[in-house]
Nucleic acid binder design. Structure first.
Length: 483
RNA sequence: GGCCUGUUGGUCAAGUGGUUAAGACGUGGCCCUCUCACGGCUAAAACAGGGGUUCAACUCCCCUACAGGUCACCA
C-alpha cells in the first residue's frame, strides 16, 4: 500500500509551501487509496513553540486535508511525535556504531569552530573517527558529552527522483553528519530516515531543499539494509521578489490569507496548481476532484511565484459559483454592518454583490449609498453614452417622479413595467430615464444594480425622497447657470 | 566558494524532434447592457545567450549567464 507523510516541525507558522507539500502527499495517498500520515518533528528542544502543534492541526483541518494516522488519531506505527521516540533513534544509532557505520564524536564547539572557513562553512574532519572503539565507549560511559556521527564511506551515490530524475553526488562532498545530538535527541536528518522506514512510508514528498541531502539519507538506508522510498521532491514556491517564502520576509501564512479574506477552498485550489498541472484548461477543482485527477506526471520542476492577484481572482470565482444561500450566510455579518435601512432586503443585496467581489471586505464600499446617499455634482447625471445632459435628466426625473408617485407595488417587476411604459410613452431612450434615476438613487457613478432595481430595493418613500432631492439640486444648478 | 537544481509572455502553465508555441491571471479594445460587474469576443505579450547533434530543435548534448537550494548539535 502506498503511504505518504507530512512531517512538519511545530514552529507555529504554516506557510503556503508547507501546506502544498502536505496537500500533494495527501492527494497522492488518496488517489492511490493509500494512507496519509502526520508526524510531528519536534526534536529541536530549543525551538519548541507553545501551541504550534495546534496550528498544524487547525490548518490541515480547515484546508480539508485529513490524515489517517497521527498524534491525534493514532495508528499502528506510533507514537507520531518524534520527541516520544527518542529511544528508538538512539538504539538505531548504536546499532550503526557497532557496525562501524557511525561513531561517537567528542569534539566541542571550540574545536569545531576552528574548522570553519572564511565563508563560515565547516566540514568535519573526522577527528574522532581515530578514537578506538573501546576508548570511545569508555569516554561515553564516563559521562563525557558526545554526538554520534554518520561515517560517510568513499564513493559516489546516485538515486532517482520522480520529478528531477537521476541525481548523482560524490561522497567527498558529503559531511559526516550528526545523527544524535549531545542531548540524546536525534537530528532531523536521522529521525526522518528512521521514522520513514519504521512507519512504512513508500513515497517521500518534500520540498526540494532536501534534494542535496538525500544522498546522505540514502547512505543511511543502505547502512541499515533498508529499501529506499520513492522520492518526490517539489520545486519551491517563491514570493514576488523571487525569494523563498518565509515568515521573515513577511510572506503570508495560511492563517494570514484566511484573515485577509481568502477562502480556504480557493487557497487549496490555487496552491494545487503551483508546481503541478492537470494538463487541461480547467483550473477550478475542489479538493475531492483533485483527489481524482492528481498525478505525478503533472509535477513541474521549476520554482513558481506565489501570485496573490491570481489567487484573488480565484477567490472571486469561488464566490460566484457559491450557492446563494451559502453566500448570504458568509456575507450576512458584513451586510448587516453596512446596511441598516430597515426596508432593504439584504438577501437581494447579497445577490447583487455576489458576482462583483473577490473578497467580502469589498462589499461595504459597494453598498454604502443605501444608507447614506452621498452629495453628488450635477454633472453626474450627464452621460454621453446614455445620451443624457442636465435638461434631459431633470425633465425625466420629474417624469419618473410623477409616474412612480402613483405606483403602489414596488416589486422589481412592477417598477420595471411602470418605468418602461413611461419610456415608451415619452419615446425616449431607456437610458435617458434610467440613468438619471440610477444616479439620483445612488449618488455614485456606479452601483451594483440599475435604476429599476434600485427603486425596488429602496422602496417607495426613499425612492421618491431621493428623486425629489435630485430634482431640487438640478433646478438650483440650472437657475444658477441662467443668472 | 563547492555541490545540487532550475530557466516557455509580467505571473501560473501546456508542450517530450516537424505546432500558426495552448490555456488561465493581469493589461488594452469591442460586444451585451438602465451604470458597474457577470458573460462573450479580441489584441499586445514568451522558448535566457552561444555552440553543437540532426534533413529538422523550445524539445537532445556541451558551455556561459542568471536564479534558487544546500553545505548547523534547524528542520
Amino acid at each position: 500500500m502506498l503511504r505518504t507523510r507530512f512531517a512538519p516541525s511545530p514552529t507555529g507558522y504554516m506557510h503556503i509551501g508547507n501546506l502544498r507539500t502536505a496537500l500533494y502527499g495527501y492527494l497522492l495517498a488518496r488517489r492511490h487509496e493509500g494512507a496519509f500520515v502526520l508526524r510531528i518533528e519536534d526534536t529541536d528542544q530549543a525551538r519548541l513553540v507553545e501551541g504550534a502543534v495546534k496550528v498544524i492541526f487547525d490548518t490541515l483541518r480547515t484546508a480539508g486535508i485529513s490524515h489517517d494516522e497521527g498524534p491525534d488519531v493514532g495508528g499502528e506505527y506510533g507514537p507520531y511525535v518524534q520527541s516520544e521516540r527518542k529511544e528508538i533513534y538512539l538504539s538505531h544509532a548504536n546499532e550503526l556504531i557497532s557496525q562501524g557505520k557511525a561513531y561517537r564524536c567528542f569534539c566541542g564547539k571550540e574545536r569545531l569552530d576552528t574548522l570553519v572557513d572564511k565563508r563560515g562553512i565547516a566540514k568535519y574532519d573526522k577527528h574522532c573517527l581515530g578514537i578506538k572503539p573501546e576508548e570511545s565507549k569508555r569516554k561515553a560511559d564516563a559521562g563525557e558529552p558526545y554526538v554520534i556521527r554518520q561515517l560517510i564511506p568513499d564513493g559516489e551515490t546516485s538515486f532517482q527522483d520522480i520529478v528531477y530524475g537521476e541525481i548523482k553526488v560524490s561522497h567527498s562532498d558529503l559531511d559526516d553528519m550528526i545523527l544524535i545530538k549531545s542531548d540524546g535527541m536525534p537530528t532531523y536528518n536521522f529521525a526522518n530516515v528512521v521514522d520513514d522506514h519504521l512507519m512504512g512510508i513508500t513515497h517521500v514528498v518534500r520540498g526540494n531543499e532536501y534534494l542535496s541531502s538525500t544522498p546522505k539519507y540514502n547512505l543511511l538506508y543502505e547502512a541499515f539494509g533498508w529499501e529506499l522510498p520513492t522520492y518526490i521532491h517539489l520545486p519551491l514556491i517563491n514570493n514576488e521578489s523571487g525569494e523563498k517564502l518565509s515568515k521573515r520576509h513577511g510572506d503570508a501564512s495560511f492563517e494570514d490569507l484566511l484573515k485577509e479574506g481568502y477562502l480556504p477552498e480557493a487557497v487549496v485550489n490555487y496552491i494545487a496548481l503551483l508546481g503541478w498541472s492537470p494538463k487541461s484548461d480547467r483550473e477550478i477543482y475542489s479538493l475531492e476532484e483533485l483527489c481524482q485527477v492528481f498525478d505525478l506526471d503533472g509535477l513541474n520542476k521549476s520554482p513558481s511565484i506565489f501570485d496573490k492577484v491570481k489567487l484573488a481572482w480565484m477567490n472571486g470565482e469561488y464566490f460566484k459559483k457559491m450557492d446563494p444561500g451559502k453566500f448570504y450566510e458568509l456575507a450576512e455579518e458584513t451586510l448587516k454592518n453596512s446596511v441598516k435601512a430597515p426596508q432593504v432586503d439584504l438577501k437581494k443585496v447579497a445577490a447583487m454583490v455576489q458576482t462583483r467581489i473577490n473578497f467580502l471586505h469589498e462589499i461595504p464600499p459597494i453598498v454604502d449609498f443605501i444608507d447614506n446617499i452621498p452629495e453628488f455634482p450635477p454633472d453626474l447625471v450627464v452621460h454621453k453614452k446614455m445620451k443624457t445632459d442636465i435638461p434631459i435628466s431633470l425633465e425625466n426625473l420629474k417624469n419618473a417622479y410623477a409616474s412612480l408617485e402613483t405606483l403602489k407595488d414596488y416589486s422589481d417587476a412592477a417598477v420595471h413595467l411602470r418605468l418602461f411604459s413611461l419610456i415608451a410613452e415619452l419615446g425616449v431612450k431607456n437610458s435617458q430615464v434610467l440613468w438619471p434615476v440610477r444616479t439620483a438613487l445612488s449618488g455614485k457613478p456606479t452601483s451594483p444594480c440599475g435604476g429599476t432595481e434600485l427603486c425596488a430595493l429602496l422602496g417607495k418613500d426613499e425612492t421618491l425622497k431621493r428623486i425629489q432631492k435630485s430634482i431640487e439640486m438640478l433646478e438650483k444648478h440650472v437657475q444658477s447657470l441662467a443668472r
